[in-house]
Design a binder for these strands. Structure first.
Lengths: 397, 397
DNA sequence: CGCTTCACTGCAAACGTTTGCAGTGAAGAA
DNA sequence: TTCTTCACTGCAAACGTTTGCAGTGAAGCG
């Protein structure tokens, strides 16, 4: 244990030979012996109570309770082929976007007597694939949240274990998505409505479906509104990733910014602040996700609210539904054509909503203070320290 | 699926009868047949490679690779008694305090070929107990993070499954703690050093060991520094919990506040702001944890940094160590006195550090603007309408 | 009374591994 | 040559469940 601060404050001999720790694991057989029935009856008492005589049942339950019996899920899984576990693979657990989704998924799963296995990939596509493999055999299905890998790989993996994809569309697979496209459109329209014509888009990580959707919709909305959209990225979807773009935003002469997510938006505001650029007076910023944090920063963030909790619940439901439709039994089950061929894979789109707070405002008056600028038209920040022409970054198609 | 926003955008018949989905699960037997050896040899190829002839090994591995064989962990667990899973039970995954700990634990576990099962209790002691029970049989051990239940219950549960307790001291059990006591002391001393004599403590949830430690140390430090400490609580450890206390803080006449965690501190600052009380000009606020968020709010939060990642890593190591010391084998193993009695349970204390940022400052001048107050003595906020002098900014101790 | 039905329970074979033990043949020692 | 050692592999019994099948006795029915 190589922690720098580690410091042993106390050690202690464990309980002596009378140690009751790790008490003999009590199995179904112990319960059977104690209650004078066969193990199969005990098994049925738990998994098919209606098949056993009420008297017997109470006796067995009493004995089980008494001995502290808990069915061994591994053994059960071995024969039934269902672990009652769900894997949830997410890009970065430290991103506040995910916890609500995780909580919702856990809650929904727990209600259905399932457990959720959460794993973090650090935004790494390779880790993602490995995790799916590792989880495949110990869960009944996997929720893939904001995957960064390729569509073909996802399809391939879906052959190994039932998959539900969150935040991405993959043909032929059950997906639950949030309509960030619509959200991005609303955000851009909001900005255009405020008079902005030079808008920057901070895109997300490479391989992000969400990022592509945002970009496409934002570009369309900007075009429709007569504004110019400068795309900056791809970027890591963190506050740091946002902060690092402050200068580029400034150089690009944008008066408004749409960020891939709130974290980046907040980081950007920080970065702009360090450059002496004020939000929303000098530059308007809008994020996406509406994480709790976006209500806590100053200025409070204008953002596109995504229904993360609903997405978590829905995904769990879809996965479980998928399981009941086409169980992958222990034996060569499921070859039943009637069940197999009639299955349909649903794709759900959850709506988003623009939440207007304090980080967006009108276009700053240019050059000479006092000159109100409202109408559209090309416009650069007066003098951000350097000659302004340069429209850095990529321009959306 | 009762989502208000739910909207089916597309359904699609699944692949037809040639469906390769849920392909026949390939077992060790298939590999054995393919490579012309006995299943035990295949087994050994994976779990004890040195026992099998190199030639055979490569052949088996090739076949396994070819067939896409993955050992069934459930079956393995059944016989070895080790699932290679770790349970991690935390109070609230949405609290940004936890994600770094979770990530660290996951990383450390992954390195040792273990997986982490994260579960959230919503700060509910009952859910906590249920979760331990539920996890007991499908993990090799459980990390109990910031548990809210009673010590006796924890001890009792530790008989059912190996336990490592994080953020709490339980006699006889391995624990990894963070020295919040020392941190609270430093925080109070910092405040006293700035001249504050009326300090409020926002305590945490009922049953929190951390909260008790903080309270004890803060009280001692306040006494030593000649300041008066008003304890407010218990409270839910959330921003909302903090925000709800703004009025009480004001009524108590405190000029400085130490909060149970950063979330509460941030919430409090919000709440005070709504009341027209400015931080740090009118009231100084110190948090605990140093979550990422504390660097992003305005003012940046003065706080006690806790080594959460280190705690996560350490806890995993301790749990795994505990396992190797006294494995709970499938058979009546472990009754070996030499191994059993010699075990010691370590308790590790990780150090904390006060990070001074912008949310603490000097004592506001009372009543008449300009009258500098520095010395100790009873003091109330002159006019909550705030006509203050304000010595903002941070002062290093 | 004899037959069927029914509710309940026991039997035993799985599920996919691991692992102690024994067997094999070849190499080395005497 | 014969005996021992050794590296490797096969055999089969577990691990703790579930579940199809068959057996039991009692109740219902004609």
């Amino acid at each position: 244990m190589e922690q720098p601060f580690a410091l042993i404050v106390g050690t202690r001999r464990d309980r002596s030979h009378t140690d009751e720790r790790a008490a003999v694991p009590v199995t179904i057989r112990d319960v059977a012996r104690a209650s004078g029935v066969h193990i199969s009856t005990v098994s049925r008492t738990f998994s098919a109570p209606h098949l056993v005589n009420p008297e017997t049942r109470v006796r067995v339950l009493a004995c089980a309770e008494d001995l502290g019996y808990r069915p061994n899920r591994a053994a059960r899984a071995l024969i039934t082929g269902r672990t009652h576990n769900i894997g949830l693979i997410i890009a970065d657990i430290a991103n506040p976007f995910f916890p609500p989704l995780i909580k919702a998924a856990e809650g929904q799963a727990r209600q259905r007597d399932y457990h959720v296995f959460v794993a973090d990939t650090n935004e790494d596509p390779v880790a993602e694939e490995e995790l799916v493999h590792a989880l495949a055999k110990q869960v009944d299905g996997v929720l893939l949240c904001s995957p960064r890998m390729s569509n073909t790989l996802i399809e391939q993996l879906s052959r190994e274990v039932p998959l539900v994809v969150i935040n991405r569309q993959v043909a032929g697979l059950p997906c639950v998505m949030m309509d960030v496209g619509q959200g991005a459109r609303a955000a851009v329209e909001h900005l255009v409505g405020l008079g902005h014509t030079a808008i920057a888009l901070l895109s997300g990580p490479r391989g992000s479906w969400t990022s592509r959707e945002i970009r496409r919709s934002a570009a369309a909305a900007a075009r429709a509104g007569g504004a110019e959209l400068t795309v900056l990225g791809p970027n890591p979807p963190t506050e740091h990733g946002g902060g690092a773009l402050a200068e580029q935003v400034q150089r690009a002469g944008a008066t408004a910014v749409l960020a891939y997510n709130d974290l980046m938006a907040i980081g950007l505001i920080e970065g702009l602040d360090a450059l002496g650029v004020r939000v929303p007076q000098d530059v308007s910023v809008v994020g996406i996700d509406d994480i709790a944090l976006s209500r806590l920063t100053r200025p409070k963030l204008t953002t596109v609210a995504t229904p993360t909790a609903a997405a978590g619940r829905t995904a769990v439901d879809m996965l479980l539904q998928l399981e009941t439709d086409a169980p992958r039994g222990p034996r060569g089950a499921g070859r039943d054509a009637a069940a197999g061929a009639r299955r349909t894979t649903a794709q759900v789109m959850l709506q988003t909503e623009l939440v207007i707070r304090d980080s967006t405002g009108g276009v700053p008056s240019s050059g000479s203070p006092g000159a109100e600028r409202v109408g559209p038209g090309p416009h650069r920040l007066a003098d951000p320290g350097r000659p302004t022409a340069a429209t850095g970054g990529a321009v959306a198609s």
